[in-house]
Write a protein that binds this DNA or RNA. Structure first.
Length: 232
DNA sequence: TACCAGGAGAAAA
DNA sequence: TTTTCTCATGGT
């Protein structure tokens, strides 16, 4: 029995389609999300910046910062590059670690500039080479790189995060000590899904982790509780 | 008040 | 090589 596929089905039935990645735009400024549009250059950039800003922070804070960037008209590569680090840090302050994240964004801009700020040029790269290049950018680790590949470029790669590790350790599928790439390899082998399904699975894991599989969980109430081996 | 949130990199052991 | 520390705001 492929528990990874079973968990996906249960999470989808329970939480419903998540429609990621959340894009901030004019409607978002009224606290709503615009979903499902084809990826264009603006979406690519916003998703990539969002992926950096969301490192170890709740998305709500990121949403605040992205809205602030958009209101100031600097949520595009050229405008953002013109900002000095202090100003950028001030705008993204709600996401925490703002000095570090301002540097990380600058490093990402340097990387993106090598492609003339054209996301279509990135899309023409070999996927593995592009992943390696993203990982070589200081401030972009495996989760951020894979989030950019999957959500901003629609490249099939599984995004592993802290929720993935926690949920699948409780399920008994992971020990909790696997390296990032080991967990990712497991999903690549045992979840033969499409790009939209990979997109959905990670979003569902986050949705489930936030509401039902917290550090101090009530595991007996959720949709995958019957599959869990560990109750801590 | 203490804990947690869609990590990553540097420093220490 | 593995573990620990640092970065930091905002919500509960």
């Amino acid at each position: 029995m492929n528990h990874i596929r079973t968990v996906y089905k249960r999470l989808l039935a329970f939480h419903g389609s998540q429609g990621w990645w959340p894009i901030v735009n004019e409607s978002t400024l009224r606290s709503e999300y615009h979903l499902g549009a084809p990826r264009n250059g603006d979406d690519f950039f916003e998703i990539s910046i969002g992926a950096i800003l969301t490192q170890n922070i709740a998305w709500k804070n990121v949403d605040t910062a992205l809205a602030a960037l958009k209101i100031r008209g600097v949520l595009d590569p050229l405008s953002m590059r013109r900002l000095n680090p202090r100003t950028l840090g001030k705008i993204i302050r709600p996401t925490g670690y703002y000095n570090q994240k301002a540097k990380k964004i600058r490093n990402f801009l340097d990387f993106y500039k090598r492609y003339d700020y054209d996301h279509r040029a990135l899309g023409r790269c070999d996927n593995q080479d592009l992943r390696k290049e993203l990982l070589s950018v200081n401030g972009i680790g495996p989760e951020t790189a894979d989030s950019i590949l999957l959500y901003a470029l629609n490249i099939k790669t599984f995004v592993v995060d802290a929720y993935t590790r926690r949920i699948f350790t409780r399920l008994g599928i992971l020990t909790g000590k696997e390296a990032y790439h080991e967990i990712q390899d497991l999903f690549h082998k045992r979840f033969k899904g499409s790009v939209p399904e990979y997109n959905e699975y990670h979003a569902l894991i986050v949705a489930h982790g936030k509401d039902y599989c917290k550090k101090k969980p009530l595991c007996d109430t959720c949709c995958i509780a019957s599959l869990c081996e560990k109750k801590y």
